[in-house]
């Protein structure tokens, strides 16, 4: 009976270490090519790149970045991606969307496109491109159900790596004004001692949060 407090301490320490280990490391790189700034009546649209054959930028991540940019100090007016793409149809579909600012310049010669851009008050278009990859899966967990009850035993772990680039186009000057890259990595663990305890590294959520903060500052010119 005397061993229980010690076992509890060791278990707590182990869980604390694992919880620490499941933290996420996020790196942000900013490359500015021109001065930026935004007026109160202007807005930003964030669009996901979907031209790659083996992945596509998830709309949930695009929504997450947009939603976070509308919060806090220096909040920015964001036009929802789907609303913008539908209103601009068929000019911003995966096959027809401008890949370079030169293409945007050509696109803006279409009166319909220029009028819609003005209606939305778009000052910047942010192109998000990237995905989250899960690697280094290891360990195994087995679960059993019997007349006396059920339980799982084992240990699993994996690493998530989220890589996203945000290219910022100025619709006023029809030029690329900068690129912000984010790289977030984190190790997740799933120990199971009767009950599985997921210790998940919030890699994509952290990448979203940091990228949104950096983008907000970039667009505001601070």
């Amino acid at each position: 009976m005397k061993h229980y407090p010690e076992t509890f301490k060791i278990s707590s320490a182990l869980l604390f270490l694992i919880a620490l280990a499941s933290c996420t490391t996020t790196t942000i790189d900013e490359f500015r090519q021109a001065e930026t700034g935004i007026e109160n009546n202007e807005s930003v649209v964030i669009l996901g790149r979907r031209q790659a054959s083996d992945y596509e930028t998830r709309s949930e991540f695009v929504d997450c970045v947009g939603e976070r940019m509308t919060r806090g100090d220096g909040a920015i007016s964001i036009v929802p991606e789907q609303e913008f793409v539908d209103a601009m149809f068929p000019w911003f579909e995966p096959r027809t969307a401008p890949l370079r600012t030169r293409d945007l310049e050509r696109l803006m010669t279409e009166d319909v496109v220029a009028d819609r851009m003005t209606e939305f008050g778009i000052r910047y278009i942010v192109w998000l491109d990237g995905f989250t990859e899960t690697t280094d899966r290891s360990g195994s967990i087995s679960c059993t159900v019997g007349p006396g009850g059920a339980g799982c035993f084992g240990f699993g772990s994996w690493e998530d790596d989220a890589n996203f680039d945000a290219r910022v186009w100025d619709v006023g000057s029809l030029s690329n004004v900068g690129t912000i890259s984010t790289d977030a990595t984190g190790q997740s663990y799933l120990p199971a001692l009767v009950i599985p305890i997921p210790l998940i590294a919030r890699v994509e959520a952290n990448a979203c949060s940091r990228l949104a903060t950096q983008l907000k500052e970039f667009v505001n010119g601070s």
Binding site: P90, W91, E93, R95, T96
Partner: peptide, 10 residues
């Protein structure tokens, strides 16, 4: 289908 609509119309 949206891809069809965009490429057909353009």
């Amino acid at each position: 289908l949206r891809d069809l609509a965009s490429s057909f119309s353009l």
